[in-house]
Computed example of a mutant assay.
Amino acid sequence: MSTGFRQRLLLVAMAAIGLPASANAQVALSGHQLTLDLAMEAASEAVRSCAAHGWAVSASVVNADGVVKVQAKGDHSTIHTQDSSFRKAYTVITMGPIFGFDTTSEFVKKAAENPSAPALVTLPNIILLAGGVAIRIDGEMVAAIGVGGAPGGDKDEACAMDGVRKIASGLTSQ
């Protein structure tokens, strides 16, 4: 086995082992959760924001375990937008705490500098596309929103940010 192959294999194994524990530990530490009402409001605002620009998108919000809390398929959005929005949110919530990022665009930049990055995208539901954003309560990542379908991940991410901004005042300790 080559050293590079062993390093990639080790990285994949560490990520696969660490993902469930890391995501679960976030909730167990504080008990913070994103409410269904806030998740629905964030997804709706993200879809609305993109629609205002003429972009038909879908938005997904996942909890700290990476489980879908809300998925909103915008009017006239294509079927693949649901999958891409979920995968963007899932990537943020499962990889963000490990690699220290809050948006998938940050992850794309980090991955570009890491020779082992191609191994990461072999993990189920991980995607290297901009459009996912962390949702935090008291500094703790408790959920993530992903948007898919705009003509460019930067536009998806801007709409996701609009969704997070819409609920910002509600993101306090409950």
Rank of each mutant, 00 (worst) to 15 (best):
I167H: 04
K88H: 13
A25K: 15
S22A: 11
P20Q: 04
S60M: 03
R136N: 13
Q33D: 08
P115G: 11
C50F: 02
T172V: 09
S60I: 01
L10T: 14
Q33N: 10
I135E: 00
V61T: 04
G170D: 06
A72L: 10
H76G: 14
H32W: 05
A43V: 01
A23W: 03
A160V: 00
S49P: 04
S49F: 10
G153C: 09
I167Q: 04
L38I: 06
Q26E: 07
N125D: 11
K109Y: 14
A160P: 00
V108Y: 00
L171Q: 15
P118F: 01
G152L: 12
L9P: 11
S105T: 12
E113A: 08
Q71R: 05
V27W: 14
G4K: 13
K110W: 09
L36R: 13
I126C: 09
L19N: 11
A168E: 08
L123A: 07
G163S: 06
A52P: 15
I17G: 12
G170W: 04
S44P: 03
S85T: 06
P97H: 07
G131I: 05
G153P: 06
A112R: 06
Q82W: 02
C50Q: 00
A168C: 08
G131F: 02
A25R: 13
K73D: 14
F86E: 02
A21P: 15
I135C: 10
A43M: 04
G131C: 05
K166T: 05
G146Y: 02
K166E: 02
G148D: 04
L19D: 14
M40A: 14
L19C: 11
A150F: 08
A43F: 02
D37F: 07
S85P: 15
R165A: 02
V47L: 02
R8E: 01
G132H: 09
I137L: 07
G146I: 01
G54A: 15
I167A: 00
Y90D: 03
T3G: 13
G163I: 01
F86W: 03
V70D: 02
P118N: 03
Q26S: 12
A46T: 03
L129E: 11
F5Y: 14
I93L: 09
V27T: 15
T3F: 15
G148H: 07
I98P: 13
R48P: 07
D75I: 08
S58K: 11
A72E: 03
L10I: 10
G139T: 14
N114H: 15
A144Q: 11
D138A: 12
D156A: 15
V121K: 04
G153A: 08
D65S: 15
A59Q: 00
R8V: 14
N114W: 12
V147D: 01
I93Q: 09
K109E: 08
F5D: 15
A143L: 10
S49C: 10
D102P: 12
H32N: 02
G4S: 10
Q71H: 10
D154Q: 05
A117F: 14
T122D: 06
R87A: 01
T122E: 05
G131P: 01
P151I: 00
M1S: 09
V108M: 04
F101Q: 00
T94A: 01
A130M: 11
D102Y: 10
M161C: 12
A134F: 05
L123W: 06
N114C: 07
A144F: 12
I137D: 06
D156M: 10
A52Y: 14
P115Y: 09
S2Y: 12
N63W: 09
G74Q: 05
